[in-house]
């Protein structure tokens, strides 16, 4: 399983990662090696095996959506990379037409 550079670029776009050309090349080689190693799983016939998502049986846990703890709104500002009047500031989201 050899991963091509454009596949690496596609996966990076899905993962919202900007990669340098050097990283693209390095990851193409390293991920190919890792995937080849992972492919040994195909030695096993698993057609009749149920998948395990968690090792311990779990049930959905539901509760009423009640407020039990209130934080001072100012506390969030302390960690905000950029804020304005109690809102998080981000770069422009909607492109203008024309």
């Amino acid at each position: 399983m050899k991963l091509a550079r454009d596949e690496v670029r596609h996966v990076a776009t899905l993962a919202r990662l900007e990669l340098s050309p050097e990283e693209e090349e390095l990851f193409a080689a390293q991920l190919s090696d890792i995937l080849e190693y992972i492919n040994q799983l195909n030695e096993l016939d698993t057609d009749s095996i149920e998948p395990t998502s968690h090792a311990v049986d779990l049930m959905n846990v539901f509760r009423e959506d009640e407020i039990s703890q209130k934080f001072d709104p100012g506390i969030w500002k302390l960690n905000a990379p950029s804020e304005d009047h109690g809102h998080f500031r981000v770069p422009k989201i909607i492109e203008s037409e024309g």
């Binding site: 690496v8 990076a12 993962a15 990662l17 900007e18 990283e23 890792i34 422009k92 989201i93």
Partner: peptide
């Protein structure tokens, strides 16, 4: 733009092993 901010933030904020695993998992 918002998307380029995400991409640049994640490029600079994560180290090589974290990026490698995000790539592997996303794939």
């Amino acid at each position: 733009s918002l998307v380029s901010m995400y991409e640049a933030t994640r490029m600079e904020g994560f180290g090589a092993e974290v990026k490698r695993r995000i790539m592997l998992g996303t794939y």
